[in-house]
Simulated assay, not measured.
Amino acid sequence: MMKKILIALFLFIGTMSIQAQEIRWVTLDEAMARQKKSPKPIFMNVYTDWYGPCKMLDKETFQDPEVIDFINKNYYAVKFNAEGNSVVAFKGNKFSNPGFDPNRKGRNSAHELTSYLKVQGYPAMYIIDRNGDTQQQIIGYKTHEELLKILR
């Protein structure tokens, strides 16, 4: 009986740790609001749905436990679709994607925020301070080792 309880406990703990191991993504609006209450920088991943290196970043780098832990502890994490149709308030401006076509497959028009951030390629990652100023821009796919070296 005790053996079954221990096995069940280990399985439960293992399941909980697997579920807890992901980056806690929020919207840019949520990150800015949280930053006002408890200041820490924002780590923003600007991606597209169709681009292979963006998908690799999600599947590989952002699944690494050390990356997950580091980003969750040190940043508010924002995942922003560079071709999405969200309306975003940032630094006193409203940004949208007036050319967004919901029926389009693959590439769509670029969101206005990507122009404002001066995105030079995808994936693009930004470190944004509590004033909304870009402290660092990281362009292109990075392995977990490369990203951690940059972030540290």
Rank of each mutant, 00 (worst) to 15 (best):
D29W: 04
Q136D: 09
P65I: 03
T114S: 15
F12V: 13
R34I: 03
L113Y: 04
N72T: 04
M125D: 04
Q120W: 12
R130L: 10
N103M: 07
L147T: 05
F12K: 02
G84P: 00
G92Y: 00
F43S: 08
K79M: 07
S96E: 14
Q137V: 08
P98H: 02
Q35N: 07
Y76F: 13
G92K: 04
F100T: 02
E83H: 08
G52E: 14
L117N: 03
T61H: 10
K105G: 10
I42N: 04
K118A: 13
P65G: 06
K59H: 11
Y47A: 01
L117D: 02
Y116M: 09
G106R: 01
M44F: 06
F43L: 03
D69L: 15
F12L: 15
L6K: 06
G84K: 02
D29A: 15
Q136V: 02
I138Q: 02
D101T: 01
E30Y: 09
A20V: 03
I23S: 07
N103I: 00
R107P: 10
R24E: 15
G52Q: 13
N74Q: 09
Q19H: 12
I71P: 00
G84H: 00
Y76H: 01
P53M: 00
P98K: 09
I138A: 04
W25S: 04
F43C: 02
S86E: 14
K94D: 11
V26E: 14
L57E: 07
F90Q: 10
N97P: 00
R107F: 13
